[in-house]
């Protein structure tokens, strides 16, 4: 293989043009979407469940083909980007391989993208996601939240240029979630990663993202596009500040409005 170092390259910008996806039986999941997602920033997608968030992430990862429209990631196709090993995705289901320990599940990602094994980095990440001491445990013996944290560590270990996180904290308890939300951005911000975060927690979106896109029920379209200008690093207590609460209220209102409107009236 060519000695390309994906994580040495700058983070990519994502451009979706007229992107739509329908499944067999004619169910349309994404309304034609036109989107530009800035390089090196964290963009959060919030929307009601079943609206097509996971589908959008799979399209961007090149794991599914759009029914119409196109996606460009840093000037190449999702499939090309994927094949260069520059993408990491944390799936909604943690999908750890049950026969591997936490440590070897994380190390597998490095092996898959043909990076040299780095046990020290693996252990560091294990500590960082709060799994200290569980490196040699198999997934079956972990709680749902612990599995998700292991999956997050696996997504980060390859230092991807494009990080796709699909409800990564869904099963993580509130306290740990806040800690992770505090810690993790430090990992991907300095190395320049384009991060796309799907979440159903409005607070999480505001806390982590530079921009929040609110999606309507299926077929998904963008009903609000909100820039989060809060300074970084953001302390956990920032969620009690007035600016934060205003942004959160704005997003919640957009969510409710998007859900209340019949999809046909959607133009924009």
């Amino acid at each position: 293989m060519a000695a390309e170092q994906p994580f040495g390259d700058p983070p990519p910008q994502i451009t979706c043009a007229g992107l739509s996806k329908s499944f067999a039986g004619g169910m349309q999941v994404l309304a034609p979407l036109d989107l530009t997602i800035a390089a090196g920033r964290t963009t959060a997608l919030v929307g009601p469940s079943g609206c097509g968030k996971s589908t959008l992430l799979r399209l961007i990862a090149g794991l599914a083909e759009p029914s119409a429209g196109s996606i460009g990631i840093g000037g190449v196709s999702p499939a090309q980007m994927r094949r260069s090993g520059a993408i990491s995705m944390a799936f909604q289901d943690p999908s750890l391989l049950p026969w591997r320990t936490v440590r070897s599940n994380i190390a597998l990602a490095q092996k898959l993208v043909r990076q040299p094994a780095d046990p020290a980095a693996v252990d560091h990440l294990i500590d960082l996601v709060g799994l200290t001491g569980f490196g040699d445990t198999r997934p079956a013996a972990l709680s749902g939240g612990m599995r998700q944290r292991a999956a997050i560590a696996r997504a980060l270990i390859t230092r991807p240029r494009l990080l796709l996180l699909d409800e990564p904290f869904g099963a993580v308890d509130e306290l740990t979630r806040r800690q992770l939300a505090q810690e993790l951005p430090r990992l991907w911000e300095p190395q320049g990663t384009t991060t796309l975060l799907v979440t159903h927690s409005v607070d999480e979106a505001v806390l982590l993202a530079d921009r929040v896109l609110v999606l309507s029920p299926r077929p998904a379209r963008v009903v609000a596009d909100i820039a989060i200008t809060l300074p970084r690093p953001r302390e956990p207590l920032v969620i009690h500040r007035a600016e934060f609460r205003e942004l959160a209220a704005e997003i919640s209102a957009a969510l409710a409005e998007g859900a209340g409107q019949p999809p046909s009236q959607a133009a924009e």
Binding site: L63, S84, I87, M89, D93, L112
Partner: peptide, 12 residues
């Protein structure tokens, strides 16, 4: 499960 295969594919 197909998501395990997706995982492998997501790493190219």
């Amino acid at each position: 499960p197909s998501v395990w295969l997706d995982l492998i594919r997501s790493y190219g």
